[in-house]
């Protein structure tokens, strides 16, 4: 058991934490931006799944055609799919103003169906899992020192932590769009009265949020796995929904939440390899239980955005 405290173990744990947290950072930022405008997007799980599929399918096709930048083009295809699904959520939550819980779940079911349909259609029922050569990791500090090994990560991980989180914060708190977004999410009547288009702002946040969610999914297929499997997202979208409440709609707190979940997930992966006499499925369930626990401890009396779940129609 002394293995747990060894440097190698710690380095592996930290490195895996950053990797596992990456898709959650994208998903949570996407959901925070959506919910700040007042719309709960339960389409997140499906949008991540469709992003993972679209990214992979496009990359596989382009790679077979010998296109060099197939991974980045695949990522672009995933982003496009995510934007479309964000706009679809907008159609239901903003334009039609129907129940956001049910329409969001409907979008998740639709995305799941579409992705599985597309996968079966393109790749058939082969026993061999189709693969693409995924994104390579980069190691700015070399791969010899412990810090260097921890920081040997995908570029998308660097972008998540060093670009997406700060930019989300900046966007929400330091730009005109962010001011409008928060106004629309807290008090749409007042925002409308002061000349802000509630519908346009909400659509913009959902489309941007959908794009980020899809990148989170595509990270799994294009970086981590180099493949697409039906269980690739496995509830990470729902974890993001929990993280957003945990983070009280703040991007930086959302990042800490993602790291916490990433840490627990990475820890259970390490514990599995220690050969404890427990079924590994119980370890797999651990991160979900910890998320519920974190929510129970930190999710009490949180102040939801004022117009959360409320459609807005000018009278």
């Amino acid at each position: 058991m002394s293995d747990i405290f060894s440097l190698t173990f710690l380095v592996g744990l930290l490195s895996a934490t950053l990797r596992v947290a990456t898709p959650l950072v994208y998903g949570a930022m996407g959901e925070i931006i959506s919910e700040r405008g007042g719309v709960l997007n339960l389409g997140i799980e499906g949008t991540m799944f469709l992003g993972a599929f679209t990214g992979f399918a496009a990359a596989a096709a382009l790679s077979n055609a010998g296109v060099a930048g197939y991974l980045w083009l695949g990522l672009a295809a995933a982003i496009l799919a995510g934007m479309i699904m964000g706009a679809l959520m907008g159609l239901f939550a903003v334009t039609l103003g129907v129940n956001q819980h049910v329409s969001g779940l409907g979008i998740t079911l639709l995305c799941t169906g579409l992705a599985l349909f597309g996968f079966r259609l393109i790749f058939g029922e082969s026993d061999v899992l189709p693969k693409v050569t995924p994104f390579a990791q980069i190691a700015p500090l070399g791969a010899t020192s412990p810090a260097g090994v921890v920081l040997e990560q995908y570029l998308l991980t660097y972008i998540a932590f060093l670009v997406v989180v700060p930019v989300s914060w900046w966007l929400i708190y330091r730009t005109r769009f962010g001011l409008n977004l928060r106004a629309v999410g807290e008090n749409p009547e007042a925002a409308d009265a002061s000349g802000v288009s509630v519908a346009r702002t909400r659509y913009a946040s959902l489309v941007l949020g959908g794009a980020l969610m899809a990148v989170g999914g595509a990270f799994l297929s294009l970086a981590q796995l180099g493949a697409f499997t039906p269980g690739i997202v496995a509830g990470r979208g729902w974890v993001c929904i929990a993280l957003v409440i945990f983070a009280r709609w703040h991007p930086v707190r959302g990042m800490w939440g993602a790291l916490l979940f990433g840490g627990v997930f990475a820890l259970q992966l390490r514990l599995q390899t220690l050969g404890l006499e427990l079924p590994y499925e119980l370890f797999l369930a651990l991160p979900y239980l910890v998320t519920i626990l974190a929510l129970a401890l930190a999710g009490r009396n949180v102040a939801y955005p004022g117009a959360y779940l409320k459609p807005y129609h000018r009278e």
């Binding site: 339960l42 819980h101 496995a234 509830g235 729902w238 974890v239 929904i241 929990a242 409440i245 369930a285 979900y288 239980l289 998320t291 519920i292 929510l295």
Partner: peptide, 9 residues
């Protein structure tokens, strides 16, 4: 919503 969803997994 979140807690019931997570317990499915």
């Amino acid at each position: 919503v979140v807690t019931t969803l997570l317990l499915n997994y």
